Simulated assay, not measured.
Amino acid sequence: MPKLPNGERVEENESSVFTLPDESAGESKPSIPYIINPRRWLALAFVAVLALFAAIWFAAPAQLPVAAYKLALVLVAGLAGHLFDCVVFPYAVPSSYLYEDWRAAPEEDREGDADFPVACGCEGLFMAATFRKAAIVAVFVLGVCLGL
């Protein structure tokens, strides 16, 4: 029986080389570690933006309004791209290809599985809708950034 780096033994079977720890023994771990929680990343990004603005204010105080204006333009471009995608493709939003409506339980956490699984047979459509939305937002943001 092979050992994991933390000393736990794992069972080998035909379908998988490694098995998950036994959840009945209380060994379950959170699916997303605390350090990479999306809410924590949002707070860290906000702190980083404030630190960059403080550095601009220290180095060149006259450029602070220009930097704030450019940041606002990029944010407005991203929002405009998202709204454009919603208006042009109202029935092809990525969430319409999910198995269940994600708004019914937005904080749902399924251990060992996707929180909001894609409906069977719609995986390609889901990926296409996601890439389409990302491409439209990127085009809007690049258009504004290159126009500055």
Rank of each mutant, 00 (worst) to 15 (best):
M1L: 06
M1G: 03
P2E: 10
L4I: 09
P5G: 07
P5H: 14
P5A: 14
R9T: 04
R9D: 02
V10R: 08
N13K: 12
S16R: 13
V17H: 13
V17M: 02
T19E: 08
T19H: 14
P21W: 07
P21F: 04
E23D: 11
S24Y: 03
A25S: 14
G26F: 06
E27W: 13
E27A: 12
S28M: 09
S28T: 04
K29L: 13
P30A: 10
S31Q: 15
I32P: 07
I32H: 01
P33N: 07
I35D: 03
I36Y: 11
N37P: 05
P38M: 04
R39V: 06
R40C: 00
W41M: 12
L44F: 11
A45S: 13
A51Y: 04
F53S: 03
F53A: 04
A55K: 07
W57R: 12
F58M: 12
A59P: 07
P61N: 02
P61H: 05
A62D: 03
A62R: 00
L64S: 05
L64Y: 11
V66C: 00
V66F: 13
V66D: 09
A67C: 09
A67N: 04
A68Q: 06
Y69N: 08
Y69T: 10
K70C: 03
A72C: 07
V74K: 01
V76W: 05
A77D: 08
A77K: 00
L79Y: 02
A80D: 01
L83E: 11
L83K: 09
D85Y: 00
V87F: 10
V88H: 03
F89N: 06
F89S: 03
P90L: 08
P90I: 03
P90S: 02
A92D: 01
P94W: 06
S96W: 03
Y97F: 15
E100C: 01
D101E: 01
W102N: 10
W102I: 00
W102C: 06
R103V: 09
A104H: 11
E107K: 14
E107F: 15
E108L: 15
D109S: 14
D109Q: 14
E111D: 12
E111Q: 15
E111P: 02
G112I: 09
D113Q: 15
D115F: 06
D115W: 01
A119K: 15
A119Y: 04
A119P: 05
C120K: 15
C122M: 11
G124Q: 12
L125G: 02
L125M: 00
A128T: 03
A129Y: 04
T130Y: 01
T130H: 07
K133F: 01
A134S: 14
A134E: 12
I136P: 08
V137Q: 02
A138W: 12
F140W: 08
F140H: 00
L142W: 10
L142Y: 10
C145E: 08
G147V: 08
L148G: 05
